[in-house]
C-alpha cells in the first residue's frame, strides 16, 4: 500500500460559530516527492487547509495523515516529518536570524551541532550570512521572507508546507526562493505550496488542486488539468473555474 506525503480522508472542519469557511468530506492525496500547488481565491480556505494539514487547527471529522502518521495527535512525532512556512512572519523580530534558527532548531529536535551546521548552511544559501547577527526587525520584506523559509526547513523536513512564501518580495528574492525550493525537491522534499502568483506556480508545480468554498473543484497533473478544461494557462483556468467577481 502506497504511503502518501499527505493523505486527507473525508475531512470536515468548521470554525466554531462561523460556517463561512468550512470543509466537508474533503479528500486529497499528495504523493511523496511531488511539487503540489493549492490554489483558490481569497477566502476559499487555502490557509485554513494548510493549518489543518500542519495541526495548527484540528479537524472535526475524518483524518489527515502525513507520511502515514495522523496529524493532530498528542504524539508530536509527526511534527518532525514536516516543516511549515506560514504566510505571516513567524519568528521573533527582536532576535537575529542565527538566534531564531537556534531556538526553532532546538524545538524541531536538533542538537547543538546540527543547529550550527544547518544555520551556517541555510544563511549562506539564502544570502543572509552577512546579517546573521542583526535583529530581524530591521530587515527588508524579502530578507524576512528568507528567514521565514530558513526556519521552516532547519530540520530538513520530508514534507514542506509553504503558504504564499513569496508574497511581497522583489524578483531577485523570488528567484532565489524558487530555486532553493526546486533544490529541496530534487533532494526528495515534498512541497505543498499556495500562492496567488499563478505564473510562478505554473513554473514550479507538477500537480495542483483548486479549491473554492471549501471544496476541491479540480485536481491532478497540471498539464492534464489544463487539457481537461481546454485552458492554456493556470490563470485562465482559475478565472474560468472561480469567476471574476470579488471574493473579499
Amino acid at each position: 500500500m502506497e504511503t502518501f506525503a499527505v493523505d486527507i480522508q473525508n475531512m470536515g472542519f468548521r470554525y466554531p460559530g462561523n460556517e463561512d469557511v468550512s470543509f466537508s468530506n474533503l479528500n486529497l492525496k499528495v504523493k511523496k516527492g511531488e511539487r503540489f500547488g493549492l490554489f483558490g481565491p481569497n477566502g476559499a480556505g487555502k490557509t485554513t487547509l494548510m493549518n489543518l494539514m500542519t495541526g495548527v487547527l484540528r479537524v472535526n471529522e475524518g483524518s489527515i495523515m502525513i507520511l502515514g502518521n495522523k496529524v493532530g495527535h498528542q504524539d508530536k512525532k509527526v511534527n518532525k516529518l514536516f516543516g511549515f512556512v506560514p504566510q505571516d512572519f513567524s519568528f521573533y523580530r527582536e532576535l537575529s536570524p542565527a538566534e531564531n534558527l537556534e531556538f526553532f532548531g532546538a524545538w524541531a529536535g536538533l542538537n547543538q551541532t546540527q543547529i550550527k551546521q544547518r544555520t551556517d548552511e541555510l544563511l549562506y544559501i539564502l544570502g543572509l550570512a552577512d546579517v546573521r547577527n542583526k535583529a530581524v526587525e530591521k530587515f527588508s520584506g524579502g530578507m524576512k521572507r528568507r528567514v521565514n523559509l530558513a526556519i521552516g526547513v532547519i530540520h530538513n523536513p520530508q514534507v514542506l508546507f509553504l503558504d504564499e512564501p513569496t508574497v511581497g518580495v522583489d524578483v531577485q528574492t523570488r528567484h532565489a526562493i524558487m530555486n532553493y525550493l526546486r533544490t529541496l525537491n530534487e533532494r526528495g522534499t515534498t512541497l505543498i505550496y499556495t500562492s496567488h502568483q499563478l505564473n510562478e506556480a505554473e513554473d514550479l508545480c507538477q500537480h495542483i488542486a483548486m479549491i473554492d468554498n471549501g471544496q476541491i473543484i479540480t485536481q491532478g497533473d497540471i498539464d492534464d488539468v489544463l487539457a481537461a478544461h481546454s485552458q492554456e494557462s493556470l490563470e485562465q483556468l482559475f478565472i474560468n473555474l472561480t469567476g471574476k467577481a470579488y471574493r473579499d
Binding site: 511549515f84 506560514p86 524545538w107 524541531a108
Partner: peptide, 17 residues
C-alpha cells in the same frame, strides 16, 4: 497572537517547555 506561535504549534515540542 504573533505568527511565531503558529510555528511553535507545528514543531515537535510541547508549549509547556
Amino acid at each position: 497572537v504573533s505568527g511565531s506561535f503558529i510555528r511553535l504549534k507545528t514543531l515537535p515540542t510541547n508549549y509547556a517547555v
